[in-house]
Design a protein around this nucleic acid. Structure first.
Lengths: 166, 166
DNA sequence: CGTAAATATATAAGTACTTATATAATTTCA
DNA sequence: TGAAATTATATAAGTACTTATATATTTACG
């Protein structure tokens, strides 16, 4: 058994990070092999724009649940590549409305079949199609659980109990 | 349902990263509240050293399945903090043997009860103690599956099949 | 109605990794 | 045995975020 398997949750974070990076790298291979000049890191912003457009930067950040800063940096990068453009909101001068350019829209058309295939491949990760769903469900449940009582509180509770019996 | 839940595996990577960062942040809270000057990011190297010492840098990297570079940077950082020291291996001048200093050993003593508590808290994340194990098992299974056939190949297979029927 | 608070964005710096590159020590084998 | 390949480490630069900070616009209210 590997170090990671035997250590269980103490290296939970590292394992998740590693798995995450693996998935992004694999998806990038697919884009490359399909000859589509798209990067996996662009997906979240592109996906939001595929649903709603134009949209203020702040709404993208809220939807993705990442910082304004991260979206601001990504939008700047995509703007430099000519894939999105921005314009101040007429109703509220603080807001920047983000939208796809013609080039961005064309790219979106290209990547959409890949997105569908990714979902399909993930669903087929096991014979019975059960495991990937279980993983998603397990992650969702852990996310819910830690919202109800933070992990740090749970750890402290265990700590106190251990110290009491020592 | 949140954006992340509805999108499923297309944002798998982001969700894993977010969960990972949450866990590291929570564990850091526990160290801080316990008044122990330890950072969650130090754990992997400290854990390896708690098992074997002295140990060549390359063996730490192999055990943790991270790059030599990452270990080299972490060891440099821990050495600057006076927690570890290094010495060239007498048998092989290329290797740097890493070991805990007196200060590092004292810190290890302090953090070990916390590590036990973290494992305990993770096991109790659900009433039935089933879910966290399921998550670990599900991750392990996904790790195994993608070793047998890379995700990119699976995605391509789905793509080809879709295009054939269109 | 003007000033304080809130909101939206941009930029700088930090984090924890990665890959690429350089350098040095060791091993291999023609 | 000595040149080529391998192995081990260190450092630089890049990535995709974060927090902290600055700035600008809008809203709220005494």
């Amino acid at each position: 058994m590997s170090f990671y398997s035997s250590l269980g949750f103490l290296v939970f974070g590292s394992r998740l990070r590693r798995l995450s990076e693996y998935f992004l790298a694999e998806v990038n291979k697919v884009y490359e092999q399909a000859g589509i000049p798209f990067d996996a890191s662009w997906f979240p912003v592109f996906y939001v724009l595929s649903r709603q457009q134009p949209i203020p930067l702040i709404d993208i950040a809220d939807t993705l649940e990442i910082s304004h800063s991260a979206v601001s940096q990504m939008v700047t990068s995509l703007r430099k590549k000519g894939l999105v453009k921005t314009a101040p909101c007429p109703d509220d001068g603080r807001r920047q409305l983000v939208m796809l350019t013609k080039k961005g829209t064309a790219l979106l058309q290209q990547v959409q079949p890949i997105w569908t295939a990714i979902t399909g491949a993930m669903e087929q990760l096991t014979d019975a199609h059960k495991q990937s769903r279980q993983l998603l469900e397990a992650i969702a449940q852990v996310e819910q659980q830690v919202q109800q009582a933070p992990l740090s509180e749970r750890i402290n509770a265990v700590l106190v109990k251990t110290q009491a019996t020592t």
